[in-house]
Amino acid sequence: MKVTIKSWTGVATWRWIANDENCGICRMSFESTCPECALPGDDCPLVWGVCSHCFHMHCIVKWLNLQPLNKQCPMCRQSWKFNVH
């Protein structure tokens, strides 16, 4: 072996596993947190519904609290249920 690797400084970007780039409620990028949070990551996670739509957890919780009776997904208006798998 003429050439061997001694060290490697790599660069990787992380993003949420989601089928979209922006939160449908606050319209911010998923990696940009909901309007109230300062730092992205585990402090401002995403949650999915069974309908496969995805939002900032804080956004969807606020949305659901605003609906007195039927809690619907804001995108498809199906009854909202958290996907917990």
């Binding site: 490697w8 790599g10 990787a12 970007t13 990028s29 992205p40």
Partner: peptide, 8 residues
């Protein structure tokens, strides 16, 4: 050694 960057 890896630098983890936040997209955006």
């Amino acid at each position: 050694c890896v630098s983890i960057l936040t997209m955006g």
